[in-house]
Design a protein around this nucleic acid. Structure first.
Lengths: 219, 219
DNA sequence: GTCTATATCGGGATAGAC
DNA sequence: GTCTATCCCGATATAGAC
């Protein structure tokens, strides 16, 4: 029953050492020299595998997507759209939990869309598209009724919503991030309600406007 | 008619030199040595007046508030709440226009609530409170009807809305930031519409939820 | 208190030898 | 792919002129 761990390659060793140090002392405080040293390699070598310190975080972010894929698949078993969205959000928070604190440092760069760390930028486009597709699938499989004209925008809207929650969670100072939990509870219901209400005649003009706005946001 | 410019003090000279360089080559690329050199002082002196490169940006941010106060006062002449909000937003964008590009670098740190540059943090509380008050005054003076229970939250909601627009503008890649203009046009109407609609019986539950959410966001 | 000059350090990033 | 040496820059510290 003893599983033989395969020797991790150098790149992975460096990545892991970096994450350890980020957790222990924060992103800014961890130095590349330390990272290399803990990985047992020369400091220059870290730059052979990663273009920059930021790039290490990007690699972590990308690996996270792969490792999260399974949990996301599980989330697709929910009956309602609400169930699925909630499961997706919870899965993400649970996965990032050990690194929550240093994710804050990450967000500093993420605000800039031209940064490789930005969720809106070109480098993360693939990841983003997969997330859109996942949400789209959840909408279809749960048979959620969405106004036809609004339909193409909805995945992006919900994706932005999820991103907002993640951002709030990262900086949530409350114990065990309970405020984030409350926020999810309250807001998820509201979002779904609004989605359903968007067919009501009274809200038609507002809905059109929302569509225009999302279109502008998309560029 | 020749106006004699008073010789700017050293601190101002350094601040101005820094802003020039930030504009020309970006925040990260401008070095403290260069800043000091352009200001015609020894590099050490820059650190005598500013604790760090970041601190220069903070000083700029604070000066901006003072210089913007007059324009904000002018915005209070609008008849409707929409007029006033629009004027406030436009005034801010116009003022920051020359420095728009390097404001991006600023936002990088602003994302972190514990940073002195964060609009949510303690150091900027005074500025923030003045902005709340300004919005509150605009609501009252224009006689805008707001549901009683929602009323205390509205200034903060509108403040967040303005902040979102500013953020979008900073990173707006469209020529002359025309997308931001379109976004303002569309969204401002929507926000005001929703505010008015919030009295409609159908939307009562949604309104309660929104209130709960804003309460959570406020902490 | 204001300013220059200079030395030093720590850390991200790069070049080039092997 | 790996290492060593080096560069650049932000930041700190200090000594001293005015």
């Amino acid at each position: 029953m003893t599983r033989v761990m395969p020797e991790p390659d150098t790149r992975t060793k460096i990545l892991e050492a970096a994450l350890e140090l980020f957790r222990e002392r924060g992103f800014a405080e961890a130095t590349m020299r330390e990272i290399a040293s803990r990985a047992g390699v020369a400091s220059g070598l870290a730059y052979y595998y990663f273009d920059s310190k930021d790039a290490i975080v990007l690699a972590f972010y990308q690996r996270a997507q792969e490792e999260l894929a399974a949990a996301m698949e599980l989330a697709q078993r929910g009956k309602t759209l609400t169930d699925r969205l909630q499961a997706m959000i919870e899965a993400r928070l649970k996965y990032f939990e050990p690194n929550r604190r240093f994710l804050g440092a990450l967000m500093a760069h993420a605000a800039n869309p031209s940064s490789p760390l930005s969720p809106f930028g070109e480098p993360s486009k693939e990841i983003r598209d997969r997330e859109f597709a996942r949400i789209q699938r959840a909408i279809e499989e749960t048979g959620t009724a969405v106004p036809k004209d609004l339909a193409p925008r909805v995945p992006r809207i919900l994706w932005m919503y999820q991103l907002g929650l993640l951002l709030f969670w990262i900086y949530d100072p409350s114990p065990k991030q309970e405020r984030t939990r409350a926020l999810i509870d309250k807001s998820l219901g509201l979002v779904i309600t609004l989605l359903r209400l968007s067919n009501v005649p009274l809200l038609r003009p507002a809905r059109r406007t929302v569509m225009d706005i999302v279109e502008i946001l998309e560029g």
